[in-house]
Amino acid sequence: MKTYLISLFSPDGPPPAEVDLGRIMADLEVVNAEIRAAGSWVFAGGLADQASATTIRRSDNVADAVLTDGPFIEAKEHLGGLTVVRSDDYDVVLGWAERIAGATGLPVEVRPFVDQDDPGQVPTDR
């Protein structure tokens, strides 16, 4: 069983007027329901606007962390939402990712978490 991050990349700013958010959410819910039914559900959620992000840097020779208003990487597209699934079938995960991309019209990335055999970086349940 592997854990995968399916991440969604959104362009900056509010969605264009022609985007039917209600429809997109409904389509995503269908995929989510399928992921749950397959027993693969871990977590999913959308992120608030990247202007709401705060970047924190900490170095040893400064007492306090330095906080910066804004995202770590300034870009036209940013991480807009993520779904974490657990599955032993990569092709099925790719299929879900394809449907998330289809529902949102946005590029989607699938990336495995470090494997169970690598201590320390394994995603934990709770």
Binding site: K2, D88, D89, Y90, D91, V110, P112, D115
Partner: peptide, 11 residues
Amino acid sequence: RTAGIPYRVPR
């Protein structure tokens, strides 16, 4: 290996 690309004939 890392992504878990399956070793099988597709569905």
